[in-house]
Write a protein that binds this DNA or RNA. Sequence first.
DNA 1: GTGGTCTAGACCACT
DNA 2: GTGGTCTAGACCACC
Lengths: 122, 122, 122, 122
Amino acid sequence: MAWDLDSDRPIYSQIVDIVQMQIISGTYAPGEKLPSVRLLAAEASVNPNTMQKALSELEKSGLIITKRTSGRFVTEEHEMIGQARKKLAANEVTTFFEKMEKLGFEKENILALIQDILREEQ
Amino acid sequence: MAWDLDSDRPIYSQIVDIVQMQIISGTYAPGEKLPSVRLLAAEASVNPNTMQKALSELEKSGLIITKRTSGRFVTEEHEMIGQARKKLAANEVTTFFEKMEKLGFEKENILALIQDILREEQ
Amino acid sequence: MAWDLDSDRPIYSQIVDIVQMQIISGTYAPGEKLPSVRLLAAEASVNPNTMQKALSELEKSGLIITKRTSGRFVTEEHEMIGQARKKLAANEVTTFFEKMEKLGFEKENILALIQDILREEQ
Amino acid sequence: MAWDLDSDRPIYSQIVDIVQMQIISGTYAPGEKLPSVRLLAAEASVNPNTMQKALSELEKSGLIITKRTSGRFVTEEHEMIGQARKKLAANEVTTFFEKMEKLGFEKENILALIQDILREEQ
DNA sequence: GTGGTCTAGACCACT
DNA sequence: GTGGTCTAGACCACC
């Protein structure tokens, strides 16, 4: 597993993004038990406290459920995962549009442009 | 001028991107003379050789014309600038689609999604 | 190896020509590993940076492939080498014709002249 | 007049080539009087002795005739000029073939190649 | 003053 | 060990 952490952003925040992505993409399925904090921390070469903080964030957002005695599990509510996915997607779309507008493209034209490019790729 | 260089990527490459963006966005107009290598290097707090390497790249790509004794100028061929703009846009579109596909969206659905989001923003 | 560099033209440019010639003539075979930058630089009594600049040019032109940690290799695409050979040949032919025209020969007569001379040489 | 002398070869020898070329190409017509040694030397930014030596060479080869009291003249024998022209042309042809053979072209193929290139140029 | 080239020497990432 | 990047400082040609 490539964790690829850099020192630009807080480590815990980068971990949140990675694990969130793994949940959304199904690497960790709904209801699946996550590895222990210690194991994950070791994998990522990170202090367990840091990993703990990251997982707490994910619990706040509802993607992870902690069962005191048995560990952490991915939520079984597909709805939660779907929401997270939509939120990330919305972020991607808006930052994408910001970049395109810096390049001087009007919102109205971007859709047309995308269709052009997709057509060329085929 | 905020050059905002980090150590993740080669500095000269970041400079290429920044100056390219300035040309495309019109900060430097077609035909306009660029500041001298030494001045730009001082501005960016970078060695003149590094700045030179960046500008040489831009010359190879056709965005900049060097006149030996009088300085460097933005090309007057709007065509070249338009091409660079299109190339950047195409990159943005493809990386955007890659990210969205990681999030589990099919190409066909992305267009629909964008339209939804744009409608909500209004 | 005689590098025979003079100060009329940029050294790196002369090196480009020499190595290019070695590749075309087969001194370095397709797929063969080139000596390291530092070694070549020492051979040519040149700064490693200068040699690097020359080899980078050759990489841009496609004759050389760089594998980051293991070295530089002559391309295995005979097509690329053939193209370079053709380009050099075309240059020779055109400069030859320019000289001959300065001497007052018409294009149509040059072919005939060449045939005469070749016949005499036999 | 661009004399373009470099320090690779003896200056007088370079001057011989240049003046010879001017005679062959008709810049100096058969029978025409050449400027004085002093004037030519000044033009070429060269010591008059050097110019003198160059012109003596040309006299030996028969291209120039010295008339003691009135100056130097281009020969009126078109034959002489024609021979010089042929000799230069022959040199060009042979050095051209040497270069092409270094590039791996057989004599037999060069003619065909030239015809190809000339056809493309049209 | 401009850009272009070159050297010397350093540090980095990768394997 | 490999190539890649960067800095510092020098000299050149051109105008």
